[in-house]
Nucleic acid binder design. Structure first.
Lengths: 140, 140
DNA sequence: TATATACCCGACTAAAATAGTCAAGTATTA
DNA sequence: TAATACTTGACTATTTTAGTCGGGTATATA
């Protein structure tokens, strides 16, 4: 079970942004250099973050991206939903032809995966960007 | 974040086996039919389960596989480790050349992924095969 | 107003992982 | 001696991932 780089880079980049004054735009070029993430790839990622209203863009020179909310109020779950589709460990389709129509005898493990998804989502629901910045301080 | 079919099928197959008398061998053919999993693929999976001493094989006609332990004592974490490598959401190599050598400024999110791994592994550590069989009964 | 900066966006691609299949066995029981 | 069922390594098609490329557009500032 692996996390893809898109989700990972998204969190890294946003965490990076959180460390700078929140009102002035941060350019992808800077993030790219600081975090060693390809600029072109970052652009792709930020397009999604923008569409999902996590950041807004400021065009032109000295432009960049700005967080739309206080890092304290940006949950990791939002970020994941924006770049990845969602944490969905297994694709037991509702209308599948073979087995697993919800409660069939076949899909004994159906409930397990549902439970797992909830469990993992719960982790991301309860973490926000500012949590990442404090290393040993208490969560506020 | 997705689970692969190998892990999923392994759990399904073993859960299936748990529903039958534990001392008589269950053939992969039967599991294949009941769970709609390719027989050839099951063979590959059971090879790993056997190597990791979760099941043992009984050759010849009327043969099949037998669980080596009571389902109550087979943790899902064992199964995952047997077929998949492990839950390791991110590959921040210890000796990486670019960034992230444990505590570097770059890898702000390093601790996060470690925490996530622990969290998920915890889920699998605390579930065993027999948990899957009881739908609404209390965990014993 | 020119130019550099930086976002915008769809299409493309190489590489890796996944999800199997195939072939050619061996062991055991009825 | 069939038939059943495990054994094993190699092979392959498909999908996903992790990016790259090219050609834009908008804006600040010199």
């Amino acid at each position: 079970m692996k996390l893809n780089t898109k989700s990972r880079y998204a969190v890294m980049a946003l965490a990076d942004m959180s460390k700078f004054p929140l009102d002035s735009p941060v350019s992808l070029r800077d993030i790219s250099l600081r975090q060693s993430i390809s600029l072109l790839y970052l652009e792709q990622i930020f397009l999604k973050l923008k569409k999902n209203e996590i950041v807004k863009s400021v065009r032109g020179s000295n432009g960049g991206y700005v967080l739309r909310k206080d890092p304290k109020n940006i949950k990791l779950s939002e970020i994941f939903q924006a770049v990845d589709q969602k944490v969905k460990t297994v694709g037991c389709k509702k209308d599948s032809k073979k087995g697993c129509n919800g409660k069939s005898a076949k899909c004994i493990t159906h409930e397990l995966w549902d439970e797992l998804d909830l469990y993992i989502n719960n982790f991301f629901e309860n973490k926000n960007l500012s949590d990442l910045l404090m290393t040993k301080e208490r969560k506020n």
